[in-house]
Simulated scan of single mutants.
Amino acid sequence: MRSIGVTLALVALGGCSAIQPARMRLPVELSAASARMVYSGIGGSTRGKFAVGAYHGSYERSEQRLAIFDAFVRNYGHSEFEIAGPEISSTIETRCQMREKVLDFGIAEFTTRPMAYRCEFTAEGRAIPSRFELQEVSRGIGGALSREERMGEIALGGETVQIRSVHKLDGSPIEMASPIGYVFEQHGEPVGAVELNGAPVLYLGNTADPGLVRTLTVAATTLAVFWDPANSALDDD
């Protein structure tokens, strides 16, 4: 299974310990009341079938790295999926591209072209009014600590939702450099989230709007199948 690969060692007062998967810290509004749905079928494979809640589909993805003189590095990849379920007449097809350029000098690494992940949506092969963009941002203390923050937005079916990466772990002061998940917001209020450590998990806030549920599910799936270069194993050899 490919995942962020983060675990916390929780040591009990009596000296016993247990290893549990790290979990993202949800906003208070979602941790207090939200529906939690685990994705099935999305693991470390390059392709497969998935299901989450009342939605299902298939996906395919890849990642590549091109290094020139071991210093000039280009990371790029693609992902695509089809999804069917409530508020989708037949299927929605999503095709995404990721690009990033890095200067790697061994002891230091500099991003010359920040990571950008963009997607296009079609329905039964026809373009529909929509957009999805996710970009790396570097600002404030997060940038100083080399935290690889991402922010973006999805617009689909009349719903517009902002996306921001989450780096804080539940029940711990630890913050991860790369995202452990993402929160979805409308008008500055959290309406959902997706957790990416291990099997992806979709959280839906207390909304009765089926159109928003559809948009959040598509956004979560777009991120669930995304291989972020911040977590890439391509340079582990």
Rank of each mutant, 00 (worst) to 15 (best):
V201N: 01
I174L: 09
G44F: 02
A84M: 09
E109A: 14
S31I: 05
V73N: 04
R65G: 08
W227Q: 09
Q64E: 13
E82Y: 04
R23E: 05
R214P: 05
A67S: 15
G152Q: 05
E153H: 05
V183M: 01
L66D: 15
L13K: 04
I88E: 07
G158H: 03
G181M: 00
Q162Y: 09
L223D: 06
I107K: 13
V161Y: 08
R65E: 13
T91N: 11
E175G: 02
S178W: 01
V201G: 01
M151I: 12
V201I: 15
S3A: 03
F72C: 01
P27L: 14
Q186N: 01
Q20M: 11
I68T: 09
D236Q: 10
Y59K: 04
S40L: 03
L30I: 06
I68H: 11
A51T: 10
L234E: 07
S165K: 05
F50C: 05
G77I: 01
F121C: 04
S90A: 14
V213W: 02
F105N: 07
R126W: 07
V166M: 13
E148G: 07
I68C: 00
P173I: 10
E195K: 00
L103K: 08
V102G: 02
G140N: 11
E63N: 06
P190M: 12
I141L: 15
E175H: 06
F121T: 03
K101C: 06
T160L: 08
V38S: 06
G106V: 05
R118P: 00
R2G: 02
R139L: 11
P114D: 13
A230P: 02
N231L: 08
A35R: 08
A193Y: 04
A219D: 08
L10T: 07
Q20C: 00
A18E: 12
E82T: 11
E136M: 14
S130Y: 12
G44I: 01
V52R: 04
P210F: 00
I141Q: 13
D235P: 00
D209V: 04
Y117W: 08
S90R: 14
S130W: 06
G106N: 06
M1D: 11
I141S: 13
S45G: 09
N75H: 13
E82A: 13
